[in-house]
Design a protein around this nucleic acid. Structure first.
Lengths: 232, 232
DNA sequence: TCTCTTATTTGCGCGAGCGCAAAGACAACC
DNA sequence: GGTTGTCTTTGCGCTCGCGCAAATAAGAGA
């Protein structure tokens, strides 16, 4: 892979590769397959045998988990520099979630055997992977606690702030969420409903805290949202 | 440590030690400190600097996480053969949960440096640790999905079945949950309230599915509970 | 055995937020 | 530029399950 310099920023920032040498990085990247995917592509389905793990270079993935009767839980968004399905390789069986491309995305994939060999020959990579998994576990614990201790509107506020921090882009209007994010998505992420999210966002828009359109949200006053999320 | 044979069953079953040689095991155990704790002991508090990780030999731990205003989330019970706070060592900062002894417990502890060295010298141990963390992550994802897609009574049914599978003991009456488990504990585990749990258990008792007393539950008809949890 | 503490039950009322339904807005695609 | 499909808004009613309060039960300890 000779165009590594093209996305070297992404790689440098990727927590999974922190502390690795130049030489190790190029070796690791040479073992993977790079591809571009249009929006809507399903990279893998929940339940499929886990064969490959992925690093997002550009674009974004949405990871979801299905429940009976069509209810869907939005596990998380995967921004550039983060890996998806690293876990599945270890667990060794099936993908526990479905991964869908939401912006046109460039992605590198490594199949299981390749990644296992890389992990064996680069111990630092294993440690990084462990740390990443643990961070996910802790975030999920926080979200679980919120879901059980806070009201719907507070959870929506926290979700919006979290997504904003991860994927916000400053504009003259405020901080724009940088990808298509529907009311339904937010509901699936927070454990509420489309209706509750819509009502809540409308009320915040009246307060002047946010501005929103179809699948598009701009946070104007993050501080007000933070106070709202924290207040009793 | 010369009394390893005393709890060799527990060790053999401990998924964290699967695939390790006799010699490796005794080396690992020789590096740890064994202790016994009375019920109620707090092994560590959420927020304390993470210094030690633990393996439960006998007895049981309860891991909880606090939210503002005293609300408490019961993360999980740690039965014999499982480790607690292995994660905290990697994350490297503070314990994310509080660990309380609920039955008189024998526990081995390893401090961070010791465990880190053991991980470096026993690669299989690292792989096992990774698998354990991933299993936790997946279980938490399942519970999160339940919390957001199912009603309170279904979640209580699933929780009871899960705890029964992990800590049930056959008696002539039915399958007894083998430790003090209060209505409040179940509420904290399922994201409901003391009152809802009490009403639900009462109704199941009338149906003859369970028998219960103060901090004590016997599952008489697991199949009925399973059908109840699965039904729409 | 009596007392004290803590867990549990149950009646009652209420409110958050779900979810249907129908209308309105927006984007995309011929 | 009209048409179509999808996303969003909002009114309305209703249900689940929360949470107070007060009584009861079950252990723990003296």
């Amino acid at each position: 892979m000779n165009d590594r310099h093209l996305y070297s920023d992404t790689i440098t920032q990727a927590d999974i590769f922190s502390g690795l040498e130049e030489g190790e990085l190029s070796h690791i990247f040479a073992r993977g397959y790079k591809n571009a995917y249009p929006p809507g592509t399903i990279l893998f389905h929940e339940g499929d045998p886990a064969a490959t793990c992925y690093l997002v270079l550009t674009g974004r993935l949405k990871l979801t988990k299905l429940h009976e009767e069509g209810k869907e839980f939005l596990v998380r968004y995967v921004p550039p520099g983060q890996v998806a399905a690293a876990i599945a390789l270890f667990a060794g069986k099936n993908y526990p979630v479905t991964a869908q491309v939401i912006d046109r995305a460039e992605i590198i994939g490594w199949d299981r055997n390749t990644m296992m060999n890389l992990l064996l020959s680069h111990p630092q990579l294993t440690v990084n992977m462990m740390r990443v998994v643990i961070e996910r576990l802790e975030e999920l614990q926080r979200r679980h606690l919120e879901l059980h201790a806070e009201r719907a509107e507070q959870r929506i506020a926290r979700a919006l702030l979290r997504i904003m921090n991860q994927s916000g882009r400053k504009t003259e209007e405020g901080i724009l969420i940088d990808f298509r994010l529907s009311r339904q998505d937010l509901a699936n992420y927070t454990g509420t409903t489309l209706y509750t999210v819509s009502r809540t966002l409308s009320s915040w828009e009246k307060q002047g805290w946010i501005a929103s359109g179809r699948e598009r949200i701009v946070v104007i006053d993050p501080h007000a949202l933070m106070l709202f999320a924290e207040r009793d």
